[in-house]
Amino acid sequence: MSNLLEGLRVIDLSQWLPGPAAGQMLADLGASVVKVEPPAGDPMRRLGPQDPDGVSAWYKLVNAGKTVLRLDLKSEEGKDRFAELLAAADVLLESYRPGTLNKLGFGAERRQALRPDLIHCALSGFGQTGPLAKRGGHDINYLALGGGLIASGTAERPVAAFPPVADHASALQAVSAILAALFRRTRSGQGASLDISLTETVLAWQAIPMTSALRGEAPQREGDVLNGGAAFYRIYRCADGGFVSLGAIEPKFWANFCSAVGRESWIVRQGEAPPQNGLIEEVSTLFASRPRSHWETLLNEVDCCFQALLTPEEVLAHPQVQARGQVNVSGAEGGAPLVEIGFGGWVNGQPPARRTPLQEAAPAEVLAQWWRVELQ
């Protein structure tokens, strides 16, 4: 996993979560990622639990595997150093408001002059154009505009998901676009300018519900098969306050579940039109009659798409998670734990590699390393 993009040089100008998460994925795949921050640092350094060194654990987690250097891009010296870095880079990832790079003196013409085949990825809330291009926002706002909230939650009100969906999904979208642009560059030598929007990342998932809506069948919260309206695809509360999930969409899985819990009469009711309120109430009553551990003992080995909702501690201890080697728990400075979760995939039979700790460097150090990589 760690050498698929070996030799690729990435400048990450982004802050907070979406851009840094995208940069980290590129680093996980083997790229050399340099995170350029203003003299005061990325404001995410102060968001979340603080370690004794005054830096947020959250910031460390999402930027591990990168090299950080601080430059004042409003100063002439900072601009000169950044120009040197840009001339050596393959990818520039940034999450400024549209127009900011132009104001700093690194618009499209300057970037083209410094590195003609540069892949520039601008990650923003609403995109580089349109009436909302320069409006501020966060995950919940992009989900709202992109259609990702209205049909999620309880019948009484929409509910936002956690961790933030648009932030993480747009990081994946940015990486996908960057890799596609790099693939084209290997054949044509051409760079690319990528405009990735958090809102449009969410909107891209809405073709099915929007088509349904325009046909007079708009999804209703807890009213459709996949959002709580079907007894066979729903989250249930147990007697001890724990929760379990049932995803028995296929008839064979539903039949297996019904047989396992001694309710064969429910099998023929799977086809009832949603919302299946009567059947949902009966299944809810059943699950509420026993603690979560009872249902795990009964159903974990039944082929019915059942899974208990686990606490973070239970996830970390789960045999499947441990067997895949994606998670590593270590002690940070002062003894506070850090849960590093690596890239979600194996390559050539190997689990994701451990990330190197966040480290800071000077521009000259980065350039020396980059040119050595190029000359190998």
Rank of each mutant, 00 (worst) to 15 (best):
R263D: 02
F257P: 05
S265F: 01
Q276R: 13
E250F: 05
A248P: 03
F253P: 10
C258F: 01
V268K: 13
F257K: 02
P251Y: 15
G262I: 02
G247E: 02
P251L: 02
A260Q: 00
A255C: 10
S265I: 05
A248E: 08
Q270T: 09
P274D: 06
I267G: 03
G271T: 14
P251I: 15
P275H: 07
R269G: 03
R269V: 12
P274L: 11
S259V: 05
Q270C: 09
G262Y: 00
S265K: 08
R263M: 06
N277E: 15
S259L: 14
A255L: 05
G278Q: 09
F253M: 13
V268E: 13
A260I: 02
R263I: 01
N256C: 09
F253W: 09
F257C: 00
W254K: 04
A273D: 03
I249K: 03
A248Q: 03
N256E: 07
G271V: 13
Q276Y: 03
K252G: 05
E250Y: 14
R263N: 01
G271S: 12
C258T: 03
E250G: 15
E272H: 14
W254R: 04
A273N: 04
P275A: 10
G278K: 02
N256S: 05
A255Y: 07
Q270V: 12
V261A: 00
I249T: 07
F257S: 00
C258E: 08
E272G: 03
Q270R: 11
C258R: 09
G262M: 03
G262P: 00
E250D: 10
G271R: 15
F257M: 04
S265T: 07
P275L: 01
P275W: 11
P274R: 02
W266L: 09
R269A: 14
V268I: 04
W254D: 02
E272F: 10
E272Q: 10
P251T: 10
K252N: 13
P251C: 05
R269C: 09
I249L: 14
I267C: 06
E250W: 11
W254C: 02
A273V: 14
F257T: 08
V268R: 06
R263L: 02
G271P: 11
W254G: 06
K252Q: 15
W266V: 05
N256W: 08
Q270F: 08
F257A: 09
I267A: 13
F253E: 13
N277L: 10
G278T: 04
W254E: 06
A255N: 04
G271E: 07
V261L: 00
A248K: 05
R263K: 05
V268D: 12
G278I: 08
V268G: 11
K252L: 12
A260T: 01
G271I: 12
S259A: 13
G278A: 07
Q270M: 07
G271W: 10
V261H: 00
P275R: 08
P274V: 10
I267W: 15
E272L: 11
P251H: 12
